[in-house]
Amino acid sequence: MSIIKVKNVSVIIEGNLILDDISFSLNKGDYVGLIGPNGAGKTTLIKTILGKIKYSQGSIHIKSGTKIGYVPQNYKLSQVVPISVREVLLMGKNAESKYSEEDVLKLVGLEKEFLQKNFHDLSGGQAQRVIIARSLFGNPDVLFFDEPLTGVDFETKLKLHELLSHLNKTQGLTILFVSHEVEHIIHACHKILCLHKKLHEGCHPIDFIKGKIKCPVIETTFKMCPVHHHHKTQS
């Protein structure tokens, strides 16, 4: 059952066509990766669904009562005054929060001792987990991640995906994960969308690799990979 349905949406900003006739839907329990080169309009698409950017054509239907959480591209909090992890989590709290502060930290794999720590003293990976926990605190049905892995080491990236897969399976959380690097989403997502001029949809990266569907991000990534090259010559 689709909870978000985007149909023939076009967005024009200052005379430039940023999104052209985009259609896709997000079903409950989906873990969808949205990839595309820089400047393809991925963030614009997310912000349009969130209602922060107006679209000039098409329709966006969100199932009533659906709560969307958003982990932005740049989550850096104002660093000039100390703020504890507990206070950061408090920002995400609302009347529907079914978790306690300890619960949401546990969901993202952090000990409750972290509550007292100054947020600015955390490592990049820890801070990111706290930001995800803050979004989970609002009890969302869908979570949008806008390239949350920029500037984080590979192991942290891998751990975050394990965490998201876990939340997806155990909490039934629907996830839309945006990235310009395919390796972030390749092993975790159920479905891949590639935004490059138009929106291309595939079930597995292999669809893109075999050249059925054009996606410059996947093509460049796999050109560099000798195993794939071998695979391609065989087939």
């Binding site: 969130l50 209602g51 922060k52 958003y70 932005p72 740049n74 989550y75 909090l77 104002s78 703020i83 206070e87 950061v88 408090l90 920002m91 995400g92 709290k93 609302n94 803050r134 609002g138």
Partner: peptide, 19 residues
């Protein structure tokens, strides 16, 4: 308190939560 805290530390997050 909570709303102001969110506004001053993370304005974008505050705006996505509050129309």
């Amino acid at each position: 308190w909570r709303q102001l805290l969110t506004l001053v530390f993370d304005k974008d997050f505050f705006k996505t939560k509050n129309p």
